[in-house]
Design a protein around this nucleic acid. Sequence first.
DNA 1: GCTAGGATTGGAACCGGTTCCAGATAATGA
DNA 2: TCATTATCTGGAACCGGTTCCAATCCTAGC
Lengths: 333, 333
Amino acid sequence: MPTIRDVAKRASVGIATVSRVLNNSTSVSKETRQAVLAAIEELDFTPNPIARQLSTGRTLTVGVILPFLTMPSYVERLRGVQHALAETEYHMVLFSVGSPSERDAYFKDLPRNNLVDGILIISLPPNDAQAERLALAEIPTVLIDAYHSRLSCILTDDVKGGMLATQHLIDLGHRKIGFLSDLLETPFHPSARFRYQGYRKALEDSGIPFDPAYHISGERGRENAAKMARHLLALDNPPTAIFAGNDIQAIGVLDAAKEAGVKVPDELSVIGFDGVRDSEYTHLTTIDQHLFQSGVRGVQMLIETLESNSPSPQHQRLPLDLIRRVTTQVFQE
Amino acid sequence: MPTIRDVAKRASVGIATVSRVLNNSTSVSKETRQAVLAAIEELDFTPNPIARQLSTGRTLTVGVILPFLTMPSYVERLRGVQHALAETEYHMVLFSVGSPSERDAYFKDLPRNNLVDGILIISLPPNDAQAERLALAEIPTVLIDAYHSRLSCILTDDVKGGMLATQHLIDLGHRKIGFLSDLLETPFHPSARFRYQGYRKALEDSGIPFDPAYHISGERGRENAAKMARHLLALDNPPTAIFAGNDIQAIGVLDAAKEAGVKVPDELSVIGFDGVRDSEYTHLTTIDQHLFQSGVRGVQMLIETLESNSPSPQHQRLPLDLIRRVTTQVFQE
DNA sequence: GCTAGGATTGGAACCGGTTCCAGATAATGA
DNA sequence: TCATTATCTGGAACCGGTTCCAATCCTAGC
């Protein structure tokens, strides 16, 4: 592998000059530049990025920490990150988190070793101590789908989203509204809890009493959601509408309804949350939280911070949009 | 940020000794080691991986090139890669390919710049020239779900898989068997074509004449598959079984069948291909090609090559298993 | 004709590790 | 006791870039 010194020798110039040509920095005469470019061509020289990283202190790499592709919504956010990063000169290193201890290890180590220039954390809220460390680190961090006052964030207002979804059902005339979701207490992202809060708030605002029988939560996944939905549908006085904590669960609800012979949306309205692709296929009414866009925005915010190194954390809130498809309908007696 | 020299000074030893402690290489006396470890602790020192990379020539990074997460099957393979890589000391850098030109750029550049120690290519078969370059490069490459004689590969026998699926339907007594898939000619991975060949071969082996009306291909995706399935089901003499090129398309077929009031499996048997998670949910009979495992094996082969630098390409074939679920059934008049 | 100042250029130091090699010390054997 | 060897240890070179700084050349201005 030829080095910059080989090129310098071949072009009969100094190594500094070759470097200048490579970075087309300060003035190099046209003839010299030509000579250097010719030598580079002849030797088939490519600068070694590692050496460059060492001397510049920049790695041109962004580290992405996420709960690894366990849910379509993470994949969709990651897709947004990838898309936005492709427009820049930065590479993407993936750090997958499978357990709280793994998460903590990355939170601790990644900001210290100079492996990446910036960190994107997807759907993994740090605790106060971790956030403090991240905030003090030289490497900027942006949280996507997680909040901490000390760090820059791309946020989704899950409470508001929960209200939006519930309000939609209320507006359609429903009064017996079920809520079905992941476990509310989780070591990872507590979005289900916030959405539940939104659900409760919307009911309260409309003066609809909350019925604990209409609230059920359990392990994630379509099958489990179907199981929970069967339970709701088997109640003596079953709900006429179900708000599922995410789209995958909503699809599980659709499964259960079909199986039970309950017609959607005639006899049961179903609304999801996320706006993943599967919701399109299934024509599910849902709350679109712009997952792809969250990845894009996260990258934008990180790159901005990297280039301006403004230290004050920024918080950006993504819009939420009700996408009305065919699974919700006006309540009919 | 403290450096190895700071540690050396603090522990009153030479930098070489610190390095020895860090790499617990050749003999260092117990007392010296203790002193160095204490200094490291006190200074909160972490070795800079970039500097290490420059001097050792190893980056401890594997580059993964893949058509970016456009299909569940790629995600599943990637998951396997991630899982296996997590057991090693290697990191993973993701290079996403959205177009043939992007693919060609990565094939060309990645082996040259010393950014990664090894390359995994998922579902992107290189042409001869590219394969030659990759084979000659100092950086080892392993193809997952793609074949080239000059390179190590983790393979799936799509032709055999196509035969397996078709044979299953034939064994059940079906004679009017449809085949529905992606476009057979694609700039990317031609798995659909191979599966189609397997379909044709199985028919031929059983002496069942091929009916061109039963073969349809088009853009990928569930919806498109449903559209194509509607077409097949609307034929004067519709097939009694459909083999879909992949699970997502098979799910599209199920959609179309339900919509048309055709009962699965009573009136129509459906078999998919891949064994993605969605196939579990939908209780789809399918050919499991062990996607996750393909990622794991790819990593294993790559790491092996990295550590033994054996230059001769290895080819490993993954098994194919028929998973019989509920969407296929004995043909009944 | 002489000098100030801008344009080019090259050498050397530097980034922060690893490792070769030689020197120092301790232990072993005769 | 002395030579020999094994064990430890540190300095310096090296990986391959970038960049500071000083040197050189050239041209314009007086």
